[in-house]
Nucleic acid binder design. Structure first.
Length: 298
DNA sequence: CACTTGACCTGTCCGC
DNA sequence: TGCGGACAGGTCAAGT
């Protein structure tokens, strides 16, 4: 999915586009799984309620309504939330939208506002979902109870990352930082990018990392995510923001999807391996550890 | 508990 | 051109 920077980019877009609007109709296409609430609840708590604010926790979006209910949305791998203010502009002009006229084949939910504008939830792979919850119950959702700290908040310190990692001492570090209960928001792209930045091989056991390495990794996770938010996120394939536009972080990526290309730091060829069950990009020559001997370029 | 693997889906790309 | 398999930004349930 969209990882933390992409979800945050969508959040910022929606905050400026839909606050104050009033949903009047929700159309669910194809799979009820995409929006499983009973129609009676949707009618009672969504229709006629005003959008108060758009929040994010981890990779989850929360659209708070004046009915004291919230739309809780997870985009998973291929989800998109695209606002269309004027259908004539959806297919490329004048706002450069990358999506065509909506709804399309991947549209799962169409939300109509009283002013005639629309919010589309598109999701090619149907892993994502939209659910209506009482706002006060959101922190009690299983995922919310288990999810780790927000990495971009000031109170997320290197010491906290070190402590959170203690529960996964025998895992490889990539699996540990992908674990949303350790910390929130890291996915496959930013796991690879931050490990490259910290010069840590993704298959290093957590228990073998020094304090200094974890401190460096903490810094890189934040630096990489902040840069990505600044660039509007990563468009690897499907991701677009709330206006249907792509993000440009991939132009700045150092390893992700750069297999076969030269490492920006040492010039060796970037390799793709499988780690933590995911495609993993690594420079085998400079991602070892500052604590260990540096391999020599072939 | 900690840790790994498969399942959930559709679409695309790559090798035969 | 067609077909099978691997793979794709994330979580969860089930297995060891």
């Amino acid at each position: 999915m969209p990882e933390l920077p992409e979800v945050e980019t969508v959040r910022r877009g929606l905050q400026s586009l839909i606050v104050g609007k009033i949903p009047t109709k929700a159309m669910v296409f194809d799979s009820p799984k995409s929006f499983p609430n009973a129609l009676t609840d949707v009618e009672q708590f969504l229709y006629g309620a005003t959008v108060k604010s758009v929040r994010r926790r981890a990779k989850v979006l929360l659209i708070d309504l004046s009915s004291d209910y919230s739309l809780v949305i997870h985009l998973k791998m291929t989800g998109q939330l695209v606002f269309v203010g004027d259908q004539r502009f959806a297919a490329g002009h004048p706002n450069d939208s990358m999506v065509g006229v909506l709804p399309d084949r991947s549209t799962r939910v169409e939300l109509t506002f009283t002013d005639g504008t629309h919010l589309y939830f598109n999701d090619q792979r149907k892993f994502g979902w939209v659910k209506l919850f009482p706002t006060i119950e959101v922190p009690n959702i299983d995922f919310m109870k288990k999810v780790g700290p927000e990495p971009l908040l000031d109170d997320f310190t290197p010491e906290i990352l070190y402590e959170r990692l203690q529960r996964r001492k025998k895992s490889i570090i990539k699996a540990a930082i992908l674990d949303q209960t350790v910390l929130a928001g890291v996915g496959n792209i930013y796991a690879d990018e931050s490990l490259w930045g910290a010069r840590i091989h993704p298959e290093t056991r957590v228990g073998d990392l020094s304090r200094d390495e974890i401190t460096k990794l903490h810094h890189e996770i934040r630096a990489v995510m902040n840069l990505s938010i600044e660039k509007g996120g990563s468009t690897n394939k499907n991701y677009v923001n709330a206006e249907g536009k792509k993000g440009s972080y991939m132009e700045f990526a150092n390893v992700f999807r750069r297999e076969g290309q030269a490492c920006n730091r040492c010039g060796a060829v970037i390799t793709k391996i499988r780690a933590a069950g995911r495609g993993t990009h690594v420079c085998l020559y400079c991602q070892t550890s500052p604590m260990r001997e540096q391999p020599v370029l072939p």
